[in-house]
């Protein structure tokens, strides 16, 4: 199990390492940083909804965000949408749950992510 995961794990680690180097601090913090305010949170939510990143890589990525000064609520929204909202996997979800349920679940999860972000902002 572990060995079969290892190649993709190493590739992702390599990609994140490159991403960390290539992504200029300024671009990242101007997109998602404190100055961009609520728009930054929305961008984070949209990115998290579309992106398909395995959990074990979203945390190191989020750690980069925090180190680069992205506000914690924005990071929380990004992680939550990454985990709960799946635009890319929507066809699979529709096949199991039907259009109505799939759209509603993703929509509610999207809203829910903002609530979680808001609570993080209040308590941290």
């Amino acid at each position: 199990m572990f060995l079969s995961l290892l190649p993709s794990l190493l590739i992702v680690l390599a990609l994140v390492s490159v991403f960390l180097y290539v992504m200029p601090e300024k671009t990242l913090s101007s997109l998602l940083g404190a100055k961009s305010g609520f728009l930054g949170v929305v961008i984070a939510a949209l990115a998290g909804s579309v992106a398909l990143i395995p959990g074990f890589i979203s945390y190191p990525l989020a750690a980069i965000f925090i180190k680069r000064g992205i506000p914690l609520p924005t990071v929380a929204v990004f992680i939550t949408t990454l985990m709960m909202v799946g635009i890319m996997t929507m066809p699979i979800e529709i096949a199991y749950f039907g259009k109505k349920a799939a759209f509603m679940r993703n929509f509610l999860s999207f809203i829910g992510a903002f609530i979680i972000g808001l609570l993080i902002g209040v308590f941290l």
Binding site: A101, R105, L108, G112, I120
Partner: peptide
């Protein structure tokens, strides 16, 4: 990666959120 406080709070806050989502669904 993200620290104890952030992780536990995020998990704790998501609990009522997805329970409510389940009820609405």
């Amino acid at each position: 990666f993200l620290g104890l406080k952030f992780s536990l709070l995020r998990t704790l806050f998501s609990l009522p959120v997805f329970i409510i989502i389940g009820i609405i669904m």
